[in-house]
Design a protein around this nucleic acid. Structure first.
Lengths: 256, 256
DNA sequence: CGTGATATTGATACGCATCAAAGGTAGTGG
DNA sequence: CCACTACCTTTGATGCGTATCAATATCACG
């Protein structure tokens, strides 16, 4: 859990870091919402001190109380399978919202851990619900957020159920590129916040396979990889590999 | 699309098939909702004549207008991949709600087709939104529905990303059993509404593999299979196979 | 600067896809 | 009602892709 005890109050009184001034506003809140309503939303959001790499935002099977908007950094969500191994279910970058799988059981179905120094806005769910009840655009926004999560998951299922190791990794890289682009960062050169082992776990591949394919892509001049820094040199090839064919042109992954 | 032209009116005036009397009510609407509110929900629901096997409820890339509660029968959701193949993303049985992945793009991200004679309640989304705005319990219910979908998808991702063919099929059978149980039907003996090929597509396996594993399970006296009729003879073994180990006891899949 | 985690690379084994063919089932029309 | 066809299911033989095991190289952190 995040230790929000006193830092929260600090932030509130400084009058900084509010939704109205947040640079992620257009990503996290693309809603026509009038200033007074924004203030009301803003008022319920808790801001805590940043999490460090390895700190948990929440743990599996603890009571669900809030959802979280990632302000900076990156999180990894994972569950522990019955057989005891960790299974990565998703990565959440700045501008994305995490924790929505806990709503229906009122209990988190996964744990979320910081992959690097990460700060989040905590949005208490009961208070959010009161608010969405009165602000139509906001209710719709959260319906859409959840819908997008559903769609992203189904996209990934699609990826996992059919494709080869190469196309899985290609797809994941394209998805990350797209998400960085949304934040107006480079979609050609970026840093992977997660380890090779996390990637493998997430995509259902052995670490060794991930590594091999990174070098293979490098030899084919599709990527340039330096540790966690990745540069996409040949986006077209990556697209072709990700769809498993070479005829159709590649649509941007995970748009919207 | 379903041809709802006149049958809708018919149903409405007959005062039958309404939510209040629907046997799926406790599954599809487990909400404390007062009778007057229920009437208002009821009033927006369209009821159309049943779909036959192969009829589509909606098509990918058509405008999203409604979500659907399955009253009877079963649906298959699928997308067409960039390379042109069908990819099954889910099965929806009676008491389940389908179509929620279209909310955020306002366009269906998958097609839904009847696997057998199927009837659904159509719930126009714009009118539902007005309603949820005023009925707190209902908004929460739909948040929960969507959250469950997210969790179910993540459960499946988990399954697809790690496990062997045997454990995938075991997991799927347990999931189906659980869902039949929810409807107070037998969780030991049931009919698979989908073909082997659908199962394989869904689980990322070749048809032949699905078939082989069904016979393997039969030889091990774990299942009895007669075409689409399946009897689970040894649930414990199935659980052990689904988690990939033999120590831990098996928790029911997809509860809640 | 050392120590454990992380990443790469190679050799081998195995699970599942694929190809091929035969049996079974359901729906159609004469 | 039966015959016919098209699809679905099962079973067998073979090959490929990726996991696994093993060893070394590199990185991160105290």
């Amino acid at each position: 859990m995040t230790d929000s005890s006193n830092s929260t109050v600090l932030f509130r009184h400084q009058n900084v870091n509010h939704c109205a001034e947040c640079s992620l506003n257009p990503i996290c809140l693309p809603v026509a919402i009038d200033p007074e309503e924004l203030d009301r939303l803003d008022a319920i959001i808790q801001r805590s001190r940043p999490l460090h790499r390895g700190d948990h935002l929440y743990w599996e099977e603890t009571p669900f109380e809030a959802i979280y908007a990632v302000k900076a950094g990156a999180l990894k969500a994972y569950t522990t399978t019955d057989s005891g191994e960790e299974q990565v279910t998703g990565f959440y970058l700045a501008g994305e919202v995490v924790g929505m799988d806990g709503i229906h059981t009122e209990q988190h179905m996964s744990s979320a851990v910081a992959l690097e120094t990460t700060s989040v806005c905590e949005i208490p769910f009961d208070r959010l619900q009161e608010l969405t009840q009165n602000i139509p655009g906001l209710q719709n926004h959260f319906f859409k957020l959840m819908s997008r999560e559903i769609q992203a998951d189904q996209q990934l299922m699609l990826l996992l159920s059919k494709k080869t190791a190469e196309s899985r990794i290609a797809s994941m890289l394209l998805s990350l590129a797209e998400r960085y682009k949304r934040r107006r960062l480079s979609d050609q050169r970026f840093r992977l916040p997660m380890s090779r082992s996390d990637i493998g776990n997430y995509l259902g591949l052995a670490v060794e396979t991930v590594s091999r394919i990174f070098t293979r892509f490098q030899n084919q001049n599709i990527l340039s990889v330096e540790g966690k820094e990745v540069t996409i040199l040949d986006r077209d090839s990556l697209c072709k590999i990700s769809v498993g064919q070479d005829e159709p042109s590649c649509k941007p992954a995970r748009t919207g």
